[in-house]
Amino acid sequence: MKLPFPLAEVAARHSKWLLMAGTALLVSACSATELANFPDTNRVVARADYLDRKPLPALSDYQVAAQQRVRNLLTRPMTVGAAVEIAMLNTPHLQQVYQSQQIWDEDLVLAMAEAAATETDVNHTEMDWTAARLALMKSVNTVDRFDFPKEYFDTVEDFVEVGEDVRKAYFAAVAAQQLQNMLEHAATATQAAAELANAQYQAGTANRRAQALHHMTHAEVVKALAHAKLEAVSTRETLNRLLGLWGDDANWTAPETLPPLPEARPVFDGLEEFALERRLDHLSERKSWALWHSAVDVRSEVRENYAALQIHYDIAKYQRDTVLPLSDVVLGETQLEYNGMLMGVYDLIDDTRGQVEAGREYVAALRDYWIAEAELVQSVGGALPN
């Protein structure tokens, strides 16, 4: 059984205190509490002496280092990896973890930045796992470990939950901005059409109804744009709250578009078993009957989220490869026939609306795919298999 980052590595570094001989013992170590795991008086005194010699780092040191790192990340368009890293630094609950483990210092910020620099895929990140691993490896609590499996489970689960929330909020915010940009272009086009209709009406080449139809189409797009702007503000501020950003830091730049759809439909073998090996809430169950019920729930959740991922992929791909091209063809042909006076202005306007709607549906479908992936990542324990 393989956990997302090896507890064996911690055991190797602290073998004086951790008697673990492989990943199979990780689960069994948390299945029962033995008296031998509790410290005696001498160990308590030794630990207290160690903590006296290593006082809690100054709050200001961490704050200065974290703020500088965050601002460095915000100098370029926000990626999902940058968003997760910022959340790892700024989330109050995780900061409490750093404080409790006495790693509240600039060294932790630097270690996270160095780990983030090794990531090569801008659309996927394991910074939540990385941050949790660093927190455990740097923690003074590993000096004298009595309940390491429980702390391992609790700590990593906190980081994974924050990572999922940030990923979902990030994709929602980028999608909302992309839709706003698209509707701004559409509003420019419909405004130009309305102005042309005014000129044609004044020249006597178009009637009043045709002029009004162009203006109604432009008005519909303007209203849709207003709602899109509101959605963009709402989703952006949701992400700002998760990232702990305010003031000038909240004015980060969003990418113009969502990450593209993967070329191939996502297919994973043995995903349920993979999740059972990694889901910390499942591994932390101590009674056999609770473990069985947990396994049923985990398997069901994985199947549901995996099906959602594939279906959202199919919808987005169909919208991109079939619906969008067809809407372009329809509008192009309608424009030609309208210019040749073979079709009326209502047909042209109706097909223009269809093209705008097809674009909106594709952005929504692409957003839903990436959010579905984030939910599947969470349901299998924090990262998908290669």
Score class of each variant (00 low, 15 high):
residue 6 P to W: 03
residue 145 R to P: 06
residue 138 K to D: 06
residue 62 Y to L: 04
residue 55 P to I: 03
residue 277 E to A: 07
residue 17 W to H: 12
residue 310 Q to E: 14
residue 137 M to Q: 02
residue 45 V to D: 14
residue 29 A to W: 10
residue 322 T to E: 13
residue 88 M to N: 03
residue 144 D to S: 05
residue 37 N to Q: 15
residue 193 A to S: 05
residue 125 T to A: 02
residue 237 E to K: 13
residue 64 V to E: 09
residue 2 K to S: 12
residue 6 P to Q: 06
residue 52 D to S: 14
residue 188 T to S: 09
residue 166 V to A: 09
residue 351 D to R: 11
residue 120 T to M: 06
residue 236 R to P: 08
residue 119 E to F: 03
residue 15 S to N: 13
residue 173 A to Y: 05
residue 58 A to N: 08
residue 271 L to P: 03
residue 13 R to Q: 12
residue 3 L to N: 09
residue 333 E to Q: 11
residue 234 S to N: 14
residue 182 M to Y: 09
residue 343 M to N: 09
residue 362 Y to N: 07
residue 104 W to N: 04
residue 209 R to L: 13
residue 64 V to M: 03
residue 328 D to T: 11
residue 338 Y to F: 11
residue 278 R to Q: 03
residue 106 E to S: 15
residue 163 G to K: 06
residue 59 L to E: 09
residue 172 A to D: 11
residue 202 Q to M: 08
residue 302 V to E: 05
residue 81 G to V: 00
residue 375 E to T: 14
residue 297 D to S: 05
residue 358 A to L: 08
residue 229 K to F: 10
residue 336 L to V: 12
residue 209 R to M: 12
residue 222 V to H: 07
residue 236 R to K: 15
residue 3 L to S: 09
residue 27 V to Y: 11
residue 226 A to L: 10
residue 75 T to W: 00
residue 179 L to C: 09
residue 365 A to C: 06
residue 356 V to I: 15
residue 237 E to N: 15
residue 34 E to K: 14
residue 236 R to Y: 08
residue 238 T to K: 12
residue 285 E to P: 00
residue 240 N to L: 09
residue 315 I to W: 06
residue 362 Y to H: 11
residue 211 Q to M: 14
residue 266 P to D: 13
residue 142 T to H: 00
residue 136 L to M: 03
residue 44 V to P: 10
residue 107 D to M: 03
residue 40 D to W: 10
residue 207 N to K: 04
residue 14 H to N: 14
residue 92 P to N: 02
residue 139 S to H: 01
residue 142 T to L: 02
residue 166 V to H: 06
residue 6 P to G: 06
residue 352 T to E: 07
residue 165 D to Q: 14
residue 334 T to G: 09
residue 206 A to H: 02
residue 13 R to E: 13
residue 213 L to C: 06
residue 375 E to V: 14
residue 301 E to M: 06
residue 215 H to F: 11
residue 99 Q to A: 00
residue 376 L to T: 14
residue 223 K to S: 14
residue 278 R to H: 07
residue 61 D to P: 00
residue 157 E to D: 13
